[in-house]
Design a protein around this nucleic acid. Structure first.
Lengths: 179, 179
DNA sequence: GACAGTGTACCAACCAGACGGTATAATATG
DNA sequence: CATATTATACCGTCTGGTTGGTACACTGTC
């Protein structure tokens, strides 16, 4: 595993940037290679097909989300309902992951709808893992769906909340999480 | 307006079918024409560019949703909070519009993110129009976001509720709508 | 009612460039 | 040197779009 290269992540970053800039349909191997500053040969050495590149984008997205969630849970020692709160905050954090989520999801589903299956599996896992004492299943689901809805609206660029409203909604979601 | 036989809607239907089947990235003019049973020339007679075809998909989606919403509101005479309820039910109805929504949205955003702007505008309009006496803005927004979240999860094929859970969530959303 | 003219709806053939992918040569590193 | 990594040049196919043309309904004129 002599990982001397940093082209790998570099290329993934470039792919995300390209998708955000020109749309998933125009994410071509050439454009990604150009953006990453490597030749197409270099790209194809790291990701031997376009589909493999897309899969890598999706799994990096999942990994990033997971890491952030864990970190957030650890920070909230003893707080009530910290699992679901960390989930909400990770999903709606305004960091590189927003863009990452957008581009990976859009590129994957545009190219081959099957590629998003790992994300669905991940969602299933959370739905089962997150326990919310004092909250029925429906209430829990609604809170998670609202957070997901806001996130996906932003991913698809159809969000219709301003910054203040967004903050208010997040605060309310956290309050509701406590039951 | 002597409408001789016209392939217009036929082509839009074909475009939706193609997107659902092979992914937005593989929705080509050729494949749409083939599916619609017309030549590419015939397609380009009706939609002179691919972007115009995508725009037509988006605006038909908006029109369909609006029609259904209006119909549902009319049916619910006197019921409390019928506006928001009709909105929720229209969004989550399992009919041709689910697929329509999926394909139009995915194809549009893949090709050119700007094409979804009309959908955002539409969302803004609803957020302003829908009044829910006895419900603060945040609560209203959360209900609408949860419905939207479920819908978008289904559009993106990352939904993780089974049929029974889905029904329970919708029922709870309607209950919450009454304040 | 014959007939030229007009507009609508469509088609087949084609094109230049872009596409994913291959083959292989060049270079760097251990 | 051996291996890992990157670059160059190319290939066959596909892409969005253009062109020139066909079929036919309709309209006005004589």
């Amino acid at each position: 595993m002599g990982k001397r290269k940093n082209s790998y992540d570099n290329i993934l970053n470039a792919a995300e940037a390209v998708v955000l800039k020109v749309g998933a349909a125009h994410m071509t191997l050439d454009s990604v290679a150009r953006k990453a500053g490597v030749s197409k040969g270099g790209l194809l050495y790291n990701f031997s097909t376009k589909e493999i590149l897309l899969k890598a984008m999706v799994s990096r997205l999942i990994r990033c989300f997971e890491e952030e969630r864990i970190k957030k849970i650890a920070k909230m020692k003893e707080e009530p309902a910290r699992e679901i709160k960390a989930h909400i905050l990770s999903m709606l954090a305004r960091n590189c992951r927003t863009d990452r989520s957008a581009s990976a999801l859009l590129a994957a589903i545009a190219y081959n709808p099957k590629l998003v299956e790992p994300i669905r599996k991940d969602g299933l896992k959370f739905m089962a893992e997150i326990t919310t004492p004092g909250l029925g299943f429906e209430r829990k689901a609604i809170i998670l769906l609202a957070a997901m809805g806001l996130h996906l609206q932003e991913v698809l660029q159809v969000s219709c909340l301003n910054e203040k409203q967004r903050k208010g909604v997040i605060t309310e979601l956290l309050r509701l999480s406590e039951g």
